[in-house]
Nucleic acid binder design. Structure first.
Lengths: 188, 188
DNA sequence: GTCTATAACGAGATAGAC
DNA sequence: GTCTATCTCGTTATAGAC
């Protein structure tokens, strides 16, 4: 695997575990046994590395959502698949990259901020469509704008990860995710 | 106001805005126009300052919950009052102190970790009682253990703050909080 | 209690050799 | 592409005077 990718892998994990202000070039270089200078060759500064991290994470997440759409499952199942994406991130004590960066938001350079917001916007758009489809098909039941429910779901899942992480207990996360989603599914 | 309290006030805001790894003794000293050494006199190290921050925050929060109990309102109204506590924190771009520290959890000294977890535990206990009371009085309706719903609420509100903050939009927070809580209230 | 001065270390970044 | 060496600055912390 090429160095640039290895750097992203390590830095991604470190940000998800420790936050943007909780890791350094020295940490990444140390784990890969390369010099900090090599890191600066691939990513000129921490800001550029941060942008690359969000870019890759958001792209992969978007692809995962396309894959969910391609499964041909109903809206309620899509929501469960969506929560499952978060559950996979939660393993080995990671927070959602953009959830973590939302906490660090006030200290982020502007280009990173924009990409974090776009990540949430994209998630909301996808969820909004799923929710509207589900309501139309009567597999989901909720009141008010689908967009509001979508925002509640994004926040609810991000927060479930945030609070469950200190307990290192994925059941805590799964339990909250189920309550959030099953509350929307018809036949409860 | 004495210096120790002024320090807590400034440090609290900085942690809530920027995170534990996003502020420094120099930031606090600069805002108060005192020296860093004076800061070390009142709080020997960043870890001790951090402990004092959580201690005061958790105490005030617990007092606020006692005050809610003293109002003599029904369980559904108590939940709305609980969400209102979060809404007040959300003003001027602050995250819940312990929600922020949950993000920084991996980098915190052990004494701070314990207090963060205790904060969430205490919140869950209070909410669990409210939920059980509300279910018994038929002002709240939900399935499964009250403790699970309590955890979903804590996570949902923390996450709503986390995600709404980049948008600087309290309506985003209020909307999510309402959906979380009104979904539990009878007569929907 | 508060200051100045300074130590000790780490972070982000650059220069230039290989 | 990767290295060593170095720079500059910020951070946490201490010593000792006032």
């Amino acid at each position: 695997m090429d160095t640039a990718t290895q750097i992203l892998d390590v830095a991604e994990r470190l940000v998800q575990e420790r936050g943007y202000n909780g890791f350094s070039y020295a940490d990444v270089a140390g784990e890969l046994d390369i010099s900090k200078a090599a890191l600066h060759y691939h990513y000129p500064g921490k800001a550029e590395l941060g942008e690359a991290l969000i870019e890759r994470y958001a792209t992969r997440f978007a692809e995962a959502l396309v894959a969910v759409d391609a499964r041909g499952i109903d809206a309620a199942e899509k929501l469960r698949a969506y929560a499952q994406l978060y559950a996979e991130v939660f393993r080995d004590d990671r927070m959602c990259l953009c959830g973590m960066l939302a906490a660090d938001y006030a200290t982020l350079p502007e280009p990173m901020r924009e990409r974090v917001v776009r990540f949430f916007d994209d998630n909301e758009v996808w969820l909004t469509h799923v929710l509207e489809d589900g309501r139309a098909a009567r597999t989901l039941r909720f009141q008010g704008p689908a967009r509001s429910v979508a925002r509640t779901l994004v926040g609810g899942l991000e927060g479930a990860m945030l609070v469950a992480r200190p307990y290192k207990d994925i059941k805590r996360f799964r339990s909250a995710a189920s309550l959030l989603i099953d509350g929307l599914a018809v036949e409860r």
